[in-house]
Computed example of a mutant assay.
Amino acid sequence: MTGNSSQSKILKHRAWSDAEKARICAANNADLYQAVFRAHGLPDQRTNAFWSSDAIAPPYYSNMTTLDPDAMEEQLVEIGWLTDRLGRRPGFKDGFSRFNLVDKGFQLLFSASWIWAEPHKISARAPQEWVRIRDAAALQRWEHSWKESGSPTDADVFTLGLLSDPDIHIYGRWADDGFDAGCIVNRSPEAVGISNIFSLAGTPQVFRDAVSLATVAFSPDLPLVGYERGAALDEMTKLGFKPVGQLRIWLSDEGGM
C-alpha cells in the first residue's frame, strides 16, 4: 500500500502543468516569507492572489509576492495600499512576470526562473559535515557566513523563531569554527523549497548537497522547488531541475526594497 501511495503521488506530480507547478513554487516561497516575517514578529496577510506585509521588511525580502497570475487588478490595488502605508513603493515579487512597473516608479532588480524536480529524480544521500542549525550561537555563525557570501547587511535577517518552526530547516557545513556553506529548506503541503544556497568557496558541490538535504529533511514523495538564475540555475538544471515559469523582483526607484 505504501509503495502504491507513493507512486500515485509521483504520478499526480507528473500530471501538473508548468503553470500549476509555478503556482506551487510561488506558494512555497510565500510560506518562507511568512515564516521569516512572523519570526521577526511582523504582521502579514495572505489571500489567494498575494501575500503581503505593511511592515518594514527584513533585508532582501519584499513586502509582497503574487500567488495568482490572473489576479493583477487585485494585486495592483494592494501595491497602492502598501505604498500608502509604507510612504514609498514596496519591494514586490512578481511571481509570474505579469507586470511592467517602470512607469509606476519601480525598477527591475532581476528576473529568475521557478525550478522544479520530481522526487524520484533526486538522490536521498545525506551529505557529511552538514548539520541542522539548532541554537542561537550556530545561527549567528551561519548568518555571518551567509552575509560574507554576498548578502551584506548589518541587520539580523534570520531570527531564533525560525529554529522552532517545524517546516523550516536551516543547514550549514562545518569549517573550522564556523560554516563555509549553507542553505534553507522549507516544507509546504505540495512541495519542499530550497533557498539561500551559499558557498564561501564557490564550489558547485554545494547545490548537490543542498538538494540531498532537502530530500531527506521532509517527505521524499514531495517535489523540490525554488528559484534561481545564471550559474546557479545551470547547476540546478544539471541536478534534474527544470524551469517551470518566470518571476521578477521590482524595487522602488527611490532605492531599497
Rank of each mutant, 00 (worst) to 15 (best):
G80L: 08
R132T: 11
L67Q: 08
A117E: 06
D70S: 14
S97L: 05
A112K: 01
I115A: 02
P69F: 03
F92H: 03
L86I: 08
I56M: 10
S151G: 01
R98Y: 04
A136W: 03
R134M: 10
L162Y: 07
S123M: 05
L82Q: 09
T153K: 09
S151K: 11
L82P: 06
S123H: 10
A126C: 11
K121E: 12
A137I: 12
S53M: 08
D68Y: 04
A49G: 06
F106N: 07
S164F: 07
W130G: 01
E118F: 11
D154Y: 00
I133W: 13
G91Q: 05
G150Y: 05
P59M: 12
G105M: 11
D167M: 12
E73K: 15
N63Q: 15
L139A: 03
T47A: 11
W114R: 02
S62A: 14
S97A: 15
S151I: 02
F99W: 09
V102C: 08
A124R: 13
E143A: 06
V131P: 00
A112L: 03
G91F: 04
H169K: 12
P58Y: 05
D154P: 00
I122E: 01
P59H: 09
H144M: 09
A124I: 08
S53C: 09
T47F: 07
I168A: 06
E118R: 10
E74C: 04
S52M: 10
D94Y: 04
R85P: 00
D156Y: 01
I133Q: 05
D154T: 01
Q75W: 04
F106R: 03
I122G: 02
S52D: 03
G161Q: 07
D70C: 03
L101I: 09
Q107P: 00
L101M: 15
V77L: 09
N100I: 09
Y60P: 02
P69N: 08
D156K: 04
R132G: 08
E148M: 14
K121A: 14
E73I: 09
S164T: 14
N63W: 04
D68S: 14
Q107N: 10
A55H: 08
P90T: 15
Q128W: 06
L101A: 11
F110G: 00
N48P: 00
L76Y: 06
R134S: 15
A55E: 10
I79K: 06
P58K: 09
A49R: 06
R88W: 08
G87V: 12
G91C: 08
P59N: 10
G95R: 02
T83E: 15
S164V: 13
P152G: 07
T159V: 13
L160R: 13
D103T: 14
R134C: 11
D135Q: 14
R134Q: 15
F96C: 00
R98W: 06
E78I: 03
Q75H: 05
G80F: 13
A57F: 12
S53R: 05
E73Q: 12
K121D: 13
R125G: 01
R141T: 11
L67I: 04
H144I: 02
S149L: 08
G87L: 11
T66W: 07
A137K: 12
S149F: 11
T65C: 14
L76C: 06
L76Q: 14
L86V: 06
F110Y: 15
R98S: 12
L162P: 02
D94W: 03
F110Q: 11
A124H: 12
